[in-house]
Design a protein around this nucleic acid. Sequence first.
DNA 1: GATACTAACAAACGACCGTTCGCCATGGAC
DNA 2: GTCCATGGCGAACGGTCGTTTGTTAGTATC
Lengths: 203, 203
Amino acid sequence: MDRREEILHMAGKLFSQRGYHATSMRELAKHLNLQGGSLYTHISSKEELLLEVVRQAAERFQKVLESLPQGGPVERMRALVKGHLRVIAEELPRATVFFHEWKHLSPPLLEEAKALRRRYEEGVQALVEEGARAGVFRVENVRLATLFVLSALNWTYQWYRPDGPLSLEELSEAYAKLVLRALGAAPSPEGEHREEGGEDGEA
Amino acid sequence: MDRREEILHMAGKLFSQRGYHATSMRELAKHLNLQGGSLYTHISSKEELLLEVVRQAAERFQKVLESLPQGGPVERMRALVKGHLRVIAEELPRATVFFHEWKHLSPPLLEEAKALRRRYEEGVQALVEEGARAGVFRVENVRLATLFVLSALNWTYQWYRPDGPLSLEELSEAYAKLVLRALGAAPSPEGEHREEGGEDGEA
DNA sequence: GATACTAACAAACGACCGTTCGCCATGGAC
DNA sequence: GTCCATGGCGAACGGTCGTTTGTTAGTATC
């Protein structure tokens, strides 16, 4: 990892933990054992960092869409849910920036971030549409159902902690089931039992 | 509305629109046709504003819990979903601060905000628990199901616009249905048809 | 009228901010 | 050895920040 990548990585962390505006370049530099002014050997501006982190996150999310398996809408949605949550788990700082801190970009960089986010959402909506067309997802309003799914998925960055007691596998399985049920996909025929777990996090 | 309430109201708006740290007191004052220093006649600190907005939002959300009707878990959950979304629609700035900007509080004020949020969540979880106990909600993990529901509900502040094409009524009905289905409550027996709508917003 | 209170202004304090720039040290190429 | 490129430091620039303080104007009370 070269210096620029280090800077980006740490910027993602700090921006996500404390917020873009509450993170100073001097502080970012200190975390890298540098002085603030030294960062500009490798980057052109603070804002460039923010956008680059957004781009990195967008790339990861987009890859989830592009890697969905062939198959029916249910399998593909299950894979989408799992992929989305995996990105959050593996790239929590970047995901956090992608979900919230992007707003601090100014035009025209802001437009790029919006476009990246919109692109991903359209991909998700296409999948919901696909399921609805096939009569597998029983939704009255595809757009609204998409927003519901993305809402449930996106907010996990607020409470899920990969190093917590809830494994990604467990989260993904449960979430896939909840999402598919919400969409009205035929429920699994096996019986279900209830467990109470000790997950950390709060919404 | 007295001056202090005006300040709180405008603070809520600006904090939610641009973020706590990206909102200066001079700017807040300008929106009220005052100078920055004049705000201190009415408040003690910027942070006090933030906490007060969080408190106001918490109060609204808590009232939703306290106003749930007597009845079965399904009716109560439906009412919770609708109440939660109504608060977001009616108090979008405060809700936004409650969901995200609270993090910028420093200890010990931060602890109060956390406690307020936790209190609300525990109320929601109690309802999910109630439904699971009654065998109406088929969830394996009450905590996780609660986080799912809150995730779906909370993230709406990011994309729902009360003055947009999607009415609160429509949103609430759809959301209640999706949430109840996710929880495995018996689906409504009536047929469902699909519509595509033109909602604004992006997740 | 004199006094007290309230609300706001304007200036200032001490701090911090993103960024630039002159300088220096190091390492590699010739 | 000399030259050049790279990477970093430290100081500075021009600006902003939350907050305080002295002052002023208006209003109410005696």
